[in-house]
Design a binder for these strands. Structure first.
Lengths: 146, 146
DNA sequence: CTGCAACTTAAAGTTCACTTCAACTCAAGG
DNA sequence: CCTTGAGTTGAAGTGAACTTTAAGTTGCAG
């Protein structure tokens, strides 16, 4: 099967060789080796790296990404269905994150605009005082009540 | 004027005293001192800290936040209008970030779902190949063409 | 077969955003 | 006054996510 050396794989994935080696040490991706111990990457690994980059954009740590990728089958190249399952999972994450941002956007203008950005009173930060028990700070935005 | 010692200020802002000292060293916030060299914070500093926390949520570095805050008047307590100006600026940032996330959400399902997440071909990553000159990787999502 | 770019490793270094530590001083209630 | 909790400093430590370095090895074009 056609494989790529690390330089080519780096170019195609947009991730530096050093980062790829790091990901491998951390168990996020894998490679086979040539007789001379050089890495060769399957094309299917590009999907993994793409997923890693996208997840990072959403603000997920490599630890969590590793856990997510662990759900893909180990013995065979992941199928469309395998990725679709992961995809559904991450759509949820994304929606969550978008919701945080939108709350931020919708309230920031009014709130900073009116000069009320005062953490304890502002409804951006602590609407209706229902979050006192959850500690100080912008709880509402980061960790909103369901 | 009424001021707060660092402990109270930390409690009200939801930021640890050590972080507040760090922010001050880094030029993001300021305080006055008592005769015995202890910090006293103006209430208006709470707005600054709130802004810092919100900007961090959007993924902005402290460096950039400092630059933004530098646009507030130094000699007087910022007015509603001062904050409104900053607010407008940051609404832009937020919108941008939300747009990235939404592109991600709208395309992730189809793209990962169809198994095409392959960085060079996928329209999530590199639609119509118009981004080749901007380097490899998920350019489309992170840094879309206008 | 040779030369040289591309690869290998372990270990140390970097940046960001803090936290922790040690040694000390201040402020305020009893 | 005295105790004690809160505050002060500079310096070192932390963890995440990599990058850089040094010293050596491999693979392919000519």
């Amino acid at each position: 099967m056609e494989t790529l050396p690390i330089g080519d794989f780096a170019a195609r994935s947009g991730v530096a060789p050093s980062a790829l080696r790091y990901y491998e040490r951390e168990g996020l991706i894998s490679s086979t080796r040539t007789g001379g111990n050089q890495r060769r990457y399957l094309r299917s690994e590009l999907r993994r790296v793409a997923f890693i980059k996208i997840a990072q954009q959403v603000g997920v740590s490599l630890d969590e990404i590793r856990d997510a990728l662990a759900e893909l089958p180990e013995n065979r190249t992941p199928t469309k269905a395998d990725w679709a399952k992961l995809s559904a999972h991450w759509r949820g994450r994304l929606e969550e994150r978008i919701a945080i941002m939108e709350r931020l956007r919708d309230q920031l203008t009014g709130c900073i605009g009116c000069g009320c950005l005062s953490l304890q009173r502002c409804n951006l930060i602590n609407p209706a005082d229902r979050l006192a028990a959850r500690g100080a700070g912008p709880q509402m935005i980061v960790n909103p009540p369901r």
